[in-house]
Design a protein around this nucleic acid. Sequence first.
DNA 1: TCGCCTTTTGGCAGCGCTGCCAATCCGGTT
DNA 2: AACCGGATTGGCAGCGCTGCCAAAAGGCGA
Lengths: 335, 335
Amino acid sequence: MDDLQPPGRLVTLTDVAREAGVGESTVSRVLRNHGSYSKRAGERVAEAVARLGYVPNRLAGSLAGPGASTRLAGVVIPSLANVVFPDLLRGLTTALDAEGIQCVIGVSDYDADREEALVAALLSWRPAALLLTGLEHTPGTVALARAGGLRVVEMIDTDGAGIDAVVGFSNRAVGAASARHLVGRGYRRIAYLGHDLAVDLRAGKRLAGFEDTLAESGLALCGKEIRPGPSSPGSGRAGLEALLARRPDLDAVYFSNDDMALGGYFACLAAGLAVPGRIALFGFNGLDFAAAMPQPLSTVRTPRLEIGRQAAACVMGERAKRIDLGFTLIEGATA
Amino acid sequence: MDDLQPPGRLVTLTDVAREAGVGESTVSRVLRNHGSYSKRAGERVAEAVARLGYVPNRLAGSLAGPGASTRLAGVVIPSLANVVFPDLLRGLTTALDAEGIQCVIGVSDYDADREEALVAALLSWRPAALLLTGLEHTPGTVALARAGGLRVVEMIDTDGAGIDAVVGFSNRAVGAASARHLVGRGYRRIAYLGHDLAVDLRAGKRLAGFEDTLAESGLALCGKEIRPGPSSPGSGRAGLEALLARRPDLDAVYFSNDDMALGGYFACLAAGLAVPGRIALFGFNGLDFAAAMPQPLSTVRTPRLEIGRQAAACVMGERAKRIDLGFTLIEGATA
DNA sequence: TCGCCTTTTGGCAGCGCTGCCAATCCGGTT
DNA sequence: AACCGGATTGGCAGCGCTGCCAAAAGGCGA
């Protein structure tokens, strides 16, 4: 193997053709196993490829080929700090890898304008599909996505209209189900503890569903604590301590997610408050640790991996679909 | 804005040139703000771009341009299930975004052959840089990376020789420091509890450093539990229960990471074992929740985001560097 | 052995863009 | 009024690959 590739000029298909003593078209056919070629040609090309260490240039391939069949998928997620999105990515890449499709990712930091810029940048690679998070986008993002002439999949949220395909679950319904659970268990002095809602719109939808359902029972939140910044156990712990200082009579807390709830649980442990006897805790997401807690966390499990997988299926699918994968309420032992 | 783009033929630079009434080269110069052009030309092009909704085709751009300047970085990580890698990605994308570089990612599932396949696939996009995890690769991977004529950065681990640039910390040193801490605190009956070492080589290096250091004090592990599958709190809890069943006299446990340690902590809470009085726990990574625990977890904080950032800096940098970012031992209250 | 049909093959245009180069334009000089 | 240097501009080759087409090579029955 030629280790000393003069860096600057990489091996091209033409080099392979010369080395193998066949035409360029033949090399192309062999490499893509497309069209017909003799066994002999196949062998000579394979040898030449190995000898030269040839790596195809897909930039050129996609440019030359029909339309924009790039085998690339552009993915925009709002964050990597929240486990949910890596999980989503995991389902996505696993399923897409099987189809030989690679992901180009962009992280928007929950900023719609950044999302738009990322979409424009991603589209410049002429991806075969564009995967976005949530249903709320700038008009510019929507226009770009529509004009791209490619499959667009919006993931996670189904509470609203989508551009093309939509895969997820109803965040409002999650909030509603969580409220019904708490009310059904007899809790009345319920507070909400969350991270910044202005940026995490889906958490806002859950809260809206939660409050609406409380209202149906003639109840209202008896406390609401919104912590700035992203969700984290530290934030959950500090938040619950703040909440209890203000409203010592609380009997249940609905958290924006499990990370926050874990922090709340730690706060209770530290303060010696019985869970759920003295105070009940309810989370969201159904993360790994929730089931391992001494008292399994009461929460809602979301089908994150499955959303990724189904989104990948949408990328391949012919028609745009709208898939609601639902969620599972886990009773647990903390509420 | 023309909403009805006949899908199949997207707007090209030539269209923009015609619309703006200028030559292609001028459009190209304006768009890249490269070379000189009149104010008037700039305006006409900008208008045409807006009117047509033009999105440049970078496939063509990179193909035409010099060398392989793609503004793409190929990234291979072993997993998305372990928070460490999303954190790494986060540091990476943040810093790379600022330079207008996009990441194409591949997930190897801790499989070196898969990694090689991914590297080949990524190289076919002619990325400007290749970022790998760890120092152990197949000969094929190394050959590909070398032949690519691009910057290669290996992240996280510095215990060994790299292909080009290396950014991380010494896992062996982490294990050694952890052992010194536990021994210094007087623990003698120490066990190890980890996830599958065959796949996570860096966990293996930590354990090696740990055991070597124990040996220097004339000690040896008095128990070792390796759980199949990835690390998780559930696995940590079950593992500690198994370990205690076999060796009820344990006085400390070194976990492969914080997730496992959290599970161990839950096991202690559930069994009513005092931490660290009855049994001490020591983790690895310094995740968010560690500090929020009623007794902050004793662990080692790794500079994950910073590794990502520095790796991004290496991508841009002229010369290959070798950067050891070290780590911080957090005394905590569990060991 | 010849002709006909199928398989295999190579040449070449062109994908959308950039770099190079020569042409054109502009304002001020002599 | 002819001239000059720099700013601005357009034409065009070519990046590496694929699709199309016509040419060449086989295969086979008559």
